[in-house]
Design a protein around this nucleic acid. Structure first.
Lengths: 203, 203
DNA sequence: ACTTGATTTAACCGTGCGGTCAAATATACA
DNA sequence: TGTATATTTGACCGCACGGTTAAATCAAGT
């Protein structure tokens, strides 16, 4: 009962996640999810009351993958350079494993951004920690003077952007050669922190 | 006749652009465009045969704004540092004027990326020029060794990302204070090239 | 075996979508 | 002014959407 219950629910969630990730909320129909899950459309409404409820669950799940190590990495006692290396490595690898996530999140954040920010805070992701960590490093003279918000956005942007713009970039840069683009992304795990640290390290 | 014609067509285009930019292709209905344009829904089909045709026109128009100065900037005989400054300044300013463009383009590129790349090439945007320009600078020893593709993606990403992620970033960093976020974006016009040039300049 | 409650199905509902069409109106020219 | 042509409208179509419901099926306890 409960076992079968969990299983059905998970089958639905998995199918819904795939379709929502690919097509976004508006582009997805309950029928398509039901087909992919191999069951009747009514069953989706039996387990999740509405398309909206189903989506909220999926979206929070996906978004949650972004959050947890955010603060953790920045609260360690390692150097800022190592933190940036760890951050880049961890998040780029995660997005290599889940390449549709960035576009999906960027696409859907405009719908209800506030609830997302609230969810973030509930999960314990406090960006102030990161801002503070950067500020401290500047005061200690370990890195050059820079607006911490600018640096933080640089770091996040450099990691996420190549995934969000993949359909264009892979064609423009590599004639749509998947292998080459995968290699390009993998190299960014080292390239991004190198690029940043070169910029902020005192000469 | 032609004058009124142009006017109606432009009214439609403008309304369509606004709605499409905000809600994307799937989230937009012909009825809403007609309402915003203050006319009958059938008139949209009279001027543009279908939702798809109307969208294609809008999208190419919007996308075209991104392209023209792309190659131009990189083909001048200025230094690579100045090119990066010009690029950042021009494109960030353009996105400040059209803040919905980045999310819109990123959202819709997955639908038919190839036709976009073709359109780009038709417009004379040859990314190879930029890649070559960077390669030359490396060979001349003006900047450090770096994969030109990586540097190019860094530049573009640093410019675009803060616009694509605005709903989240403005809340996380500035408690959703529009004025503060506008200031943050304006500062990036100087901050991005400074950040990049610091990283690639030989010590 | 029978009953009870949870799960799954098929048939259906109202709504809003993109799109069509014939009639009405405005425009231009003779 | 009359007529042909371009523009604009309102009524309508078929369809697929999200969602509901009542009946069928399944699982478990007695």
């Amino acid at each position: 009962m409960t076992a079968q219950d969990k299983k059905t629910e998970e089958v639905i969630m998995k199918a819904a996640r795939n379709v929502f990730l690919k097509k976004g909320y508006d582009g997805t129909t309950m029928q398509e999810i039901a087909d992919k899950a191999g069951m009747n459309k009514s069953l989706l409404h039996y387990y999740f009351r509405s398309k909206d409820k189903l989506f909220q669950g999926i979206f929070l799940d996906v978004f949650r993958m972004f959050i947890p190590r955010f603060s953790e990495i920045f609260m360690s006692d390692k150097s800022i350079f190592e933190k940036i290396e760890e951050f880049s490595d961890h998040y780029i690898e995660m997005m290599i494993q889940n390449p549709l996530m960035p576009s999906f999140v960027l696409r859907e954040i405009s719908t209800n951004p506030q609830s997302l920010v609230d969810a973030m805070k509930d999960m314990g992701a406090k960006p102030e920690f990161m801002i503070e960590a950067i500020k401290t490093e500047i005061e200690k003279g370990n890195i050059i003077e820079i607006d911490p918000s600018q640096l933080l956005v640089n770091l996040i942007g450099l990691c996420i952007f190549p995934f969000a713009a993949k359909p264009l970039l892979s064609r423009i840069l590599f004639n749509n050669d998947e292998k080459l683009y995968a290699k390009f992304l993998a190299e960014r795990k080292k390239e991004v922190p190198k690029f940043i640290n070169q910029s902020i390290r005192k000469k």
